[in-house]
């Protein structure tokens, strides 16, 4: 009689990596809906562009590396990267922005390092940073929320307008629909105080609510993922608490020159970063304590870059810088194992 001989454990929970990724995709739906509702069809079109090009590049890379294409496409990791980049670039960005971005994200940030699980940097953020540095004009022309752009008041920009923006690059339409983002407005105040800007700027007065709504949608999705135990609370909470605290102190000291904590958390991509980007397990710190340190770093960097840096939002750079620091954080934040008085710290674990 010959029986199958396998090592223990003999049972496993029926969860899979692709299942985890599918949950992430599910949790992104509210955010995508909110973006579409307030900024038009552009978001959905960008998703289509990034998704198609991303999967093509992934399949190509897998083929070149001699790996089973269907098995690795089925892990949904390229899909998640495509969606994260698509919601990060301006909804009206020309079609080649998404394609170049996915080329960089999949081939250079991911597959060159050995594919899923081996990338030291978040692929979507590598692509975003590269695009922002290389094509600042296209990457900073954000759509205005529909409440401001539609000449007939409360209406979503027409699909045809979005199509001509993305595929034809019509600058006339572009001007009608795009403008500075709230964070950008609050940074380049031309000598005015933040209070004066809040009173005078149309985008801030009427459009801030749209940004708040999108942030709320990302927040909801993130809470769902914590509830589903896809990731732990450590990274998002430490990012939000750090950014909130630091900006509260600054705002408390000088309300005329600093943005208040609530708008720090809700006007930009903070929520998206905290729940969907910084929580990418591959490129973040590995222990719970490490993730807290990782999140604190991101929160601090977001505040610093937004306040004194040259870019309107700071999420991509903050995440990438902390990705860089993650291995070192890991060395110094090992948990205290059972039966040990202190955790082992440092590169040698001493």
């Amino acid at each position: 009689m010959s029986l199958i001989r396998m090592s223990s454990p003999h049972v496993t929970r029926s969860n899979t990596s692709s299942g985890v990724m599918q949950l992430v995709l599910l949790a992104m739906i509210p955010g995508i809906l909110a973006l579409t509702l307030f900024f038009g069809w552009g978001t959905l079109l960008q998703i289509a562009i990034c998704l198609i090009s991303g999967l093509v590049f992934e399949a190509l890379a897998l083929r070149l590396r001699g790996l089973p294409i269907s098995r690795f496409l089925g892990d949904y990791s390229a899909t998640v990267t495509a969606l994260l980049l698509a919601v990060s670039i301006p909804p009206s960005a020309p079609v080649w922005i998404g394609i170049v971005g996915m080329f960089v994200a999949i081939l250079f940030a991911k597959q060159v390092y050995g594919g899923i699980g081996n990338n030291p940097f978040n692929p979507a953020m590598v692509a975003y940073a590269l695009l922002l540095v290389s094509f600042p004009v296209q990457m900073t022309s954000w759509n205005l929320p529909y409440v401001l752009s539609g000449s007939e008041g409360w209406s979503i920009p027409a699909l045809s307008d979005s199509l001509s923006l993305i595929f034809a690059g019509s600058s006339q339409v572009m001007d009608a629909y795009t403008g500075a983002t709230p964070l950008d407005i609050l940074r380049n105040r031309d000598g005015f105080t933040t209070e004066e800007m809040w009173r005078s700027d149309q985008t801030l007065i009427e459009g801030a609510a749209a940004y708040h709504a999108v942030s709320a949608a990302w927040f909801m999705g993130g809470i769902y993922l914590i509830y589903k135990k896809v990731f732990t609370w450590h990274t998002p909470v430490s990012i939000l608490v750090t950014l909130g605290l630091v900006s509260a102190i600054a705002y408390g000291v000088d309300p005329s020159n600093f943005v208040d904590p609530f708008n720090h958390l809700t006007l930009g991509a903070t929520m998206l970063a905290a729940f969907f980007i910084a929580t990418d397990p591959v490129s973040s710190a590995t222990s719970n304590r490490g993730r807290i340190v990782f999140g604190i770093g991101i929160g601090l960097l977001i505040f610093i870059i937004r306040t004194w840096g040259n870019y309107p939002d700071a999420v991509a750079f903050s995440v990438l810088l902390m990705n860089l620091a993650a291995p070192m954080i890991d060395h110094y934040t090992q948990p205290r194992s059972y039966g040990h008085k202190r955790p082992r710290l440092g590169p040698k674990g001493e």
Binding site: N15, T16, S17, V20, D75, S77, G115, I116, G117, N118, K229, V230, F231, T232, P281, V282, S284, T286, S287, N288, D330, Q334, P335, R336, S337, Y338, G339
Partner: peptide
């Protein structure tokens, strides 16, 4: 499949080790 360092093992480890590492 490749490890994505999701850390679920770490949450489950009764000896409080870092299984993924």
């Amino acid at each position: 499949q490749p490890c994505i360092r999701c850390g679920m093992c770490e949450q489950a480890c009764p000896a409080q080790l870092l299984p993924q590492q």
